[in-house]
Nucleic acid binder design. Structure first.
Lengths: 229, 229
DNA sequence: CGTGGCCTTGATAAAGTTCAAGAGCCGTGG
DNA sequence: CCACGGCTCTTGAACTTTATCAAGGCCACG
């Protein structure tokens, strides 16, 4: 792994770490490759380490008894996942699957915890990461339980819009079926809501491309001030 | 704060810490008292530190625009809350209110992070705790989105039952209205489901007292194997 | 050019919410 | 000591939202 230190320093989790620590990390990291649709790990697998997405996309999801799935996260470049069992010391609580050709860095558990013990700044970065993830979950729980689907979609579109630089036009980088699952609904319902939003002049949809045409209207939906006719 | 080290060592977050570290913590902790119904902090407040419940009960909740609330957690003795914004360096993402006469320990942010820098084991304990909390959220999201309300209630009752020592009979320690919110529904719906479960012989309800009369039947509901007639 | 994946649309049914009203409980104050 | 007011909880009926089932369209890829 020749240029690994450079790659590592671009990962927010390792941001601001001194060169020496980055080199320590380099020594324990394992480069892994996954094709689209390939399983990274399954719920219940032993958590022997965690991953960081270097390239590609990974979805984390739960499966119900009847096989229905709920996507918990979709992670892209720079984002770590699977770190819960590293510290909680158990199994993975959900499934992970590459939804695109992906390159991942794998950090073995024992080597990593040893490193943390020696590096307070790494520990603090890790604490911040987990705290923020917790906060995201808080929001997700709020949305799943407080708002109806149009509101959740509106909120997600707003989130995506400024994630992508604040433009009014952007691409969905996941399939609409996956988006449905992420929002806690099914493709049929999502499709109808896209249709209604378009017809109301809130957005325009062209395949995976979304254009927001009524910022204020979307906002009203997202906050629950207004319903979708 | 004379016996603070003893109290601290009973908090899971600090369990197993060497005496010296407990004493360090003692030096920075602030004892606070809240009456029932009193606000601990509000959404958007600056996160200047985090809390641990020593005595009493605190609920963490979000308010929607229409004033409807969703309870995210209810914390009792030994449980920390509000630590997310401390590490992520943001504001409190939700409201906190004492729902009983409560005694809380407050840990100021700056002093605490300084301490972590010196104590790797403290950091590892915190990481484990946050990871476990994250895991719980995973389950909560799964439940909110994959199961219907009777299943969520059944799962919650089972959880409570062994939380309280595994007996078939126990008290709800929150109001049914609060329970409804915790399950992502409203009191009316919860009330009807209690009625149906009782009528089906799954449980018996007497005010806040619940008796499980058909363990297997509840289990089937909780896992989604069966629906409630 | 046909096949499979993904998306859309329609009809129907189930689950939950809303609105409205009433019952039970408890503390306060006359 | 009893009555009042304020809670929480319960019940009913109408309505809304979403899931389910079923079919058809579009597009990319072999």
């Amino acid at each position: 792994m020749s240029n690994a230190p450079e790659i590592l320093s671009d990962i927010p989790l390792f941001e601001g770490l001194p060169r020496a620590q980055l080199e320590d990390l380099t020594r324990i990291v394992v480069n892994k490759h996954f094709r689209k649709g390939q399983t990274v790990f399954s719920e219940g697998d032993k958590g022997t380490g965690f991953y960081v997405v270097i390239d590609g996309l990974v979805r984390i999801f739960k499966l119900s008894v009847e096989g229905k799935e709920q996507i918990l996260h979709i992670f892209g470049p720079g984002e770590p996942f699977g770190e819960v069992p590293v510290f909680a010391g158990r199994n993975f609580p959900a499934h992970a699957e590459a939804i695109a050709e992906s390159r991942l860095f794998f950090f073995p558990r024992d080597a990593f915890t040893a490193l943390i013990g020696e590096n307070p700044s790494l520990a603090l970065n890790m604490l911040a990461l987990l705290s923020m993830r917790l906060r995201q979950f808080t929001v997700q729980v709020e949305q799943l339980s407080l708002k109806e689907v149009p509101g959740r979609l509106a909120a997600y579109l707003q989130y995506l819009s400024d994630e992508k630089g604040g433009g009014t036009s952007f691409d969905l980088d996941i399939s609409k079926g996956h988006l449905a699952s992420l929002l806690g609904t099914i493709p049929e319902t999502l499709s109808r809501i896209f249709a209604r939003m378009t017809q109301q002049g809130l957005i325009r949809v062209d395949g995976p491309r979304i254009s927001i045409t009524d910022q204020a209207g979307l906002e009203a939906l997202a906050t629950g001030e207004k319903a979708l006719a």
